[in-house]
Structures are given as C-alpha cells and as structure tokens.
Design a protein around this nucleic acid. Structure first.
Length: 602
RNA sequence: GCCGUCCUAGCUCAAUGGUAGAGCAAUGGUAUCGUAAACCAUAGGUUAUCGGUUCAAGUCCGAUGGACGGCUCCA
C-alpha cells in the first residue's frame, strides 16, 4: 500500500534519503546493523553498526550506490504489521537495534508498527516517505561526514558509526548551501580571532584558558563597561567574590558531590609551596576549590546579615570568572572553555516579587540582544521544565508548579517564541534559556534565567517577613551574555569581525600619505584620543595603497588619509570601511561625527 | 572521555620513500608615494614529540600531545 506523501516536503525527502543510504550501506556491508536515521536540519544521518571502520572514500562509493538506487526508482511501500511479526522479521534479519526499538514501542503500548519497504530494504519507520526513491534528485544530496555516535545517545552504550548527509530539492539549493558553509568558515571566530589579533588559546597555559591580546581585551572592556553601566541603571548593585573558596562551601552547595566530574580538584593549603614540594604535611590542612559558579559567595553575603522583607529584592551582579574542568573533546574556541567569566547576577526576592523580577530580566535580555545587533529571530528561546516522571528534583511540588507557570506566563507576555524542553530543567529549578547560532549553525546558550530551589535550602537563607517570621526567599540566577568568552565568540561571528563603531577595538586608522605628513597625522591622533576615540596611526614605510589594504583587512570602521591638502586646510579625508568614496571633513567635524555615532549606538 | 580526520617557517600552503620549497609577514636597504599588495636583499625548519620499519622517512607503522568535525556533557 503506497501512502500519499507531500513530495515537496523537505523533511520527507531527507528522511527518505536516509533510507536510501541505509539500503546502500546494506549492499556494501550485508552484515551491517541499522540503528536510526532521521532527517535533520539541512539533511539527514543514519547510525550503523558496521564490520569495519569507514574511511572517507567509502562515502563516494556509497553516494554512487545511492544514485543507482534512486535511478532504479523503488517505490516506498508502507505496511502495518503486528509487534510480534515485526520482532520476528527483524530478528531473522539479525537487526538487533531495530528489535530493541520495537520492544520499546511495545512497552509504550503500541500494538502495531509500520515498516517501509523499498527495493531490498525493509525498515522500521513511522514515515512518511516520498513515493519512490526516484523522487530524490541524485544531484541534490551529498554525504558529508562520518562520526561516532553512541547507541541511543548514551555514552555507556556501544559507539556506532554515523554517516551525515545534506539533501535539498535541487542541485541549485545544495550548491547554495555548500557555498554558504564556505562563507561561514570565513567568519569562524577562531579564524578571525587570529586574523584580527584578538585572542589565542595557548597549549602551554592550558586548554580552554584563552589569552586576550590587546585588541581583544579592549573589546571585552568596552562590552564590560556597557554591562556595568546598564546594570546600575537597572537597579542592580555590584558585589565581588574571590576565585577560590573553602571546600566546605561547595559541600554545602552540593557541588562537591554532584559536580565532581567537572570541577578542578582541590588544592591543599595550610603550608607553603616549599613545604608541599618537600612532601611535608600541613598541621591543619584545608582544601580550596576554584569556583565553578559564583552563587555560594553571593549567598554568604546575604547570610552575613539579618534581612527584612522591606529590603527585598536584592539584585547582586558580578562578572565572576569561574572554572569548570570540561572534558577535552568538549572544548571549542571561545564558545566552550574551562575558565570563563559569567556576567552573573542573583536576584533574591519575595514570592510576590517573582513575576515582576522575571519580566525585568526578560526585558533586560531583549535589550542586550538589540544592543548587539541580534534580531530576536536570531535567538531561540527554550523553556526548560521538569520531567514529571523523574523524581530527582529539589524543592517542593508547589514551588515547581508556581515557577514553571510564572516563567511560561512571562515568556508568553513578552511574546517570546519558546520551545518547551520537558526534562531540560536542572535539578534545582526551571529555566528560560536564550541560544544564539554560530557561523555554522550550532546553537550556543547565552542568556539564562533560572530558578533555584536548592541553594536557599542548603544555605538556609531567610528574611523576616511582615509577621516577624523567618521566610525563605526565592532566588533567581541570571546571566545576560552567559559568559563573556562565549558571547564575544558569537559576536565575532555575528559581525564577521566587522564590529560596529562603538565596539571596534580600533575605531580610526590614520594614514599619512607620506612621512612628510606624519606630524600632522600625530596631531590628529592626539585630538582623537583627547575625545576618547580609539585611534591609531600607520606610519609604516609602505605605500598608501598597502596601508589602506591593511586597515580594510583589520576591518577598521574609519580610515583617514592626510596629505598636503589636508594639512593646509586642517581637514581629513575620511574613508569608511568597505566603501571607496571619501569625504573631506574639518578635523573637529570628523571628531563630532564619530563621537555622535558612538554615543548614539550606546 | 569516545569515533573519525588532520598537524611542514609567525601565517597560508608545496615537496612519485631519495638534497625541505614558495607567497605573505619579519629584518636591512632603495623609493616618499593620494585610497585594497612598490622594488632589492637577508634571515627564518631536529617537518608537533617520542619510538619503529628501511640503504634512505615530511612521506610507511605505533604511541603521546594538540587542532578540527561529530557523540556524550554543558551546574
């Protein structure tokens, strides 16, 4: 029985392509065991258990085989069979992964499963598919990469081989996609970080511990200044805390037990380094841990005093550098590091203040994205709630119900296009996450807004309410950037390194026509600096054209060229990034123009 | 951590198992230049590290380290 499908449904097409891949793999390796093969963004993948490791050349062979299957135009025939029949069928074919999937469907209460037959391949599948393999354009797909993937995504399970492919309706779309990937590579923050001399990650210093070069550090500083100014405007107070803290703190918070997989091990103190080198034991040893988060410190500030309900809410902000020993393979440029600075704040408030505080934070987050040129469509928002089946959650039933409800309400009122992530909540509370895509489409969590039921309990936080009784406050964690490192990483990719004026490490490059005009150039440099404009002068013994080229490559927003005419008239010839046309302005006109542009953007 | 690919000068890349090269950058000169690369010269390497195979290894094999793409993870 052939089922009607929508032939221009890309997802159907991609999913069908994954079946064609599976058929091709079975031709090549009759003993291959099939796992799962869904459609994904831009294409599809299929996981296999194979008798040998694939090599890149295998992909070419498989592509040819796929094309032959497409050419043969096998119909996709759907059939519904009973669970027992399905298990028998797949057991006979020795498809152990399929048998496991069917058994799970049975446990979930299914009586029948659907299978699709096309050519020799019979695959367990909910469908839908295109009518026949011939509906796939043989020129519009490509197998792209091989990787390992754990069966059912569990690292305790066997690692299978995953083949990824991209698929589109026609060759033109495929080519456009491949071209886009090529372009995306050029805006990779790791590449631009080197080209623009912003940062590097040094093997000797340690993995995941970026070093910020002068141009990167000024970029960071500009962002940080903006952050501080906006927080003070928005009713936050600043706090500061150390990088290390006594182990007992982390025992109370629960990190010592729960997060020991990703914390740097403790350092033992109570003696000098020399004593330690000589193998001496401290008389009263104490252990200190690098902080993986700032919260316990902020809580200790709260707990150092008795608080009245009248004082609440507290909004305490800190750009605090935290350290997490991420697994080596998880590290990636600036987006996943081991030492990073969270733009953290904790809001400690009463129940009647929760909603208003959430609204304020959401508004603040939206303001931040707007300020850095992100459209809200560039940002995906996830509401992570409890998995009701799982019981490993801190806090009371009522607390969860209330906070999940109010989070969803606020998200809806603020017209956020949220995706609900059931089971995505951390054990201590529900959260709202904002994720931004990098150049190659990977999502990185930046802003986060989280409830915490655990810490107030563990640290016995309380304030005195109207009745004179102790009451436990609500605590919100939030970060707008997430971390400076990650945010700057996605920012570099977002702007492809061509930062708007207010963020540019060098805002103006002065280029004297020849060394005779260096003095005039220096005079202008001094005047720009006087006006807090980040300017440099390029007096290198190189041609004018060469120095213009260098400034363009460094993506400096304004270049000003000065020579005989300009010196005589007290003017500058202004060239804007990416434009050939120049504008001649009086020096103070230029200064005013730039200052105005910088101040407006802020 | 797991699967796979990769690692040659500061950067981007060459070199059928047979003497490690080029461009850019750097340094020293000449030219003092009007909007995306002036010209000449010099220097720069234990081919990531360690071990093996071979008459001979950048090249083949193994281990280690690192990078990249996935998986897992991301408080």
């Amino acid at each position: 029985m052939s089922r009607k499908t929508t032939p221009n449904n890309l997802e159907t097409l991609r999913h069908s392509a994954s079946h064609v891949l599976a058929a091709a793999v079975l031709e090549m390796f009759p003993e291959a065991k099939l796992a799962i093969g869904p459609a994904i963004e831009n294409g599809f993948y299929y996981d296999f258990d194979l008798p040998r490791t694939l090599i890149p050349e295998d992909l070419e062979i498989l592509e040819e085989k796929m094309k032959a299957i497409i050419k043969a135009d096998h119909p996709f025939e759907r059939a519904e069979i009973s669970i027992a029949e399905a298990i028998k069928k797949f057991e006979e074919a020795d498809q152990v992964y399929k048998v496991e999937l069917i058994s799970d469907l049975e446990k979930a209460g299914e009586k029948k499963v659907s299978v699709y037959k096309s050519g020799h391949l019979v695959d367990l599948c909910a469908g839908p598919h295109v009518e026949s393999t011939g509906k796939i354009n043989p020129e519009s797909f490509k197998l792209t990469k091989i990787s390992g993937a754990y069966w059912r995504g569990d690292e305790k399970n066997k690692m299978l081989q995953r083949i990824y492919g991209v698929a589109f309706e026609n060759k033109k779309e495929l080519d456009a996609y491949l071209k886009m990937l090529e372009e995306a590579e050029k805006r990779d923050h790791r590449k631009l970080g080197k080209e623009l001399d912003l940062f590097h990650i040094d093997e000797v210093v340690g993995l995941g511990l970026p070093l910020w070069h002068p141009k990167g550090a000024i970029l960071w500083r500009v962002i940080e200044d903006f952050w501080y100014a906006e927080h003070l405007k928005n009713g936050y107070e600043l706090v500061r805390s150390p990088h290390i803290g006594n182990r007992t703190l982390w025992e109370t918070s629960g990190h010592w037990g729960f997060y020991n997989e990703s914390m740097y091990p403790p350092m033992e103190v109570g003696q000098t380094l020399r004593d330690s080198q000589e193998g001496k034991k401290a008389k009263a040893p104490e252990q200190f841990l690098l902080k993986p988060m700032n919260c316990p410190f902020h809580i200790q500030i709260f707990n150092s005093n008795l608080h009245s309900y009248r004082e609440l809410p507290f909004r305490w902000a800190e750009c605090g550098t935290v350290y997490r020993y991420e697994k080596k393979g998880e590290l990636s440029g600036l987006t996943r590091v081991r030492g990073f600075t969270q733009d953290d704040a904790h809001i400690i408030c009463r129940v009647d203040q929760v909603k208003q505080e959430l609204e304020k934070v959401v508004d603040f987050i939206l303001f931040i994205y707007k300020s850095f040129g992100f459209a809200i469509d560039d940002v995906n928002v996830y509401l992570s709630v409890r998995d009701p089946k799982n019981e490993k959650y801190a806090g009371t039933e009522d607390g969860w119900k209330f906070t999940e409800k109010v989070l969803e309400e606020v998200a809806k009122e603020k017209k956020l296009n949220i995706t609900k992530d059931v089971g995505g909540a951390v054990f201590y509370g529900p959260k709202l996450d904002f994720k931004v895509k990098d150049a190659i489409g990977r999502e990185w969590q930046c802003s986060t807004l989280q409830f915490d039921f655990n810490m107030p309990e563990q640290f016995a936080m309380s304030f005195i309410n109207e009745k004179g009784e102790k009451e436990k406050p609500y605590m919100l964690h939030r970060a707008l950037f997430g971390s400076f490192e990650r945010f700057i990483g996605v920012l570099i990719e977002h702007y492809a390194g061509a930062f708007p004026l207010w963020l540019s490490p060098v805002q103006v490059m002065i280029i004297p026509v020849s060394e005779k005009f260096n003095k005039y150039g220096e005079k202008i440099l001094a005047e720009l600096k006087e006006n807090n404009i980040r300017a440099e002068i390029n007096k290198d013994d190189e041609s004018l054209g060469k120095r213009i080229r260098e400034a363009e490559k460094q993506k400096i927003p304004y270049m000003i060229v000065v020579g005989e005419k300009e010196e005589k008239d007290g003017t500058v010839a202004v060239r804007t990034r990416g434009q050939k046309e120049q504008e001649v302005l009086k020096v103070d006109e230029f200064v005013e123009k730039i200052r105005k542009e910088i101040d407006e953007k802020k």
